[in-house]
């Protein structure tokens, strides 16, 4: 399919194939931004052929691609008139909550709109993945309830979830004074700025390469 898109970036004849490819992405839990943008582009050129259900699925898949800005990239191509109607209003609200890390409100709103989201398998896991991504950029250790709210998992399920993360992803748990439990996230260069490669005193090879003619 990628091949088809690459060879026919501006060919209205492949529109039906692109539509069924969206369906396939939903069912087989894969994703192609390029193919979906190509379809939105064809819709933009021929608004009469636009299929609201397909667009809605593309947007749900784009939400699942967070932290990448795919959702915005899609919205730039969807007529404003349509964006003022359902389900696009709801999807834009959901995106807004995620972009501003308002996870509690996001999960509440998502629960009220199961009909749009549940048709796309893997949605919840993908959003949890995004929440974990943002948390790991930010926290070395975070209170358990902050994690619970962000990924919308509580009680026993959260214990199980944490258990899994401890075993396979290098997480750990710490009990601090007062009985509060802190979740320790694995270090990376964003939550441990010391780990950031110190690029300041190195010169990239391309710059040194400019000197070669002078040196010879």
């Amino acid at each position: 399919m990628e091949q088809l898109v690459a060879l026919n970036p501006y060919n209205p004849d492949i529109l039906p194939e692109l539509e069924s490819y969206v369906h396939e992405q939903v069912i087989s839990q894969m994703y192609s931004l390029d193919a979906n943008l190509c379809l939105l582009r064809l819709y933009q050129f021929e608004p009469g052929r636009l299929n609201i259900h397909v667009v809605s699925r593309i947007l749900v898949k784009a939400l699942m691609a967070l932290p990448a800005s795919d959702f915005n990239l899609c919205m730039f191509l969807i007529p404003e008139r349509l964006q003022l109607e359902e389900p696009f209003l709801t999807l834009a609200t959901l995106a807004h909550f995620l972009e501003t890390a308002r996870f509690r409100e996001f999960w509440d709103e998502a629960a009220r709109n199961r009909d749009i989201l549940e048709v796309v398998p893997g949605f919840e896991q993908a959003i949890q993945g995004y929440a974990i991504h943002v948390l790991s950029l930010t926290y070395q250790r975070l209170p358990r309830h902050v994690l619970a709210e962000a990924i919308n998992v509580e009680g026993l399920s959260l214990d199980k979830y944490l258990d899994h993360q401890v075993k396979s992803n290098g997480w750990s748990l710490e009990r601090v004074h007062g009985g509060q439990v802190l979740v320790v996230l694995p270090p990376n260069e964003h939550n441990h700025p010391v780990l950031k490669k110190n690029a300041t005193d190195s010169i990239p090879l391309e710059h040194v390469a400019k000197l070669f003619p002078v040196l010879t």
Binding site: E99, A101, F103, V134, L137, T138, H190
Partner: peptide
């Protein structure tokens, strides 16, 4: 406090690109 935690997460998200 909850609002601030969200704002800090937003700061991180918006200042990091894929």
């Amino acid at each position: 406090e909850a609002g601030l935690r969200m704002a800090l997460l937003t700061y991180k998200h918006k200042t990091h690109v894929v």
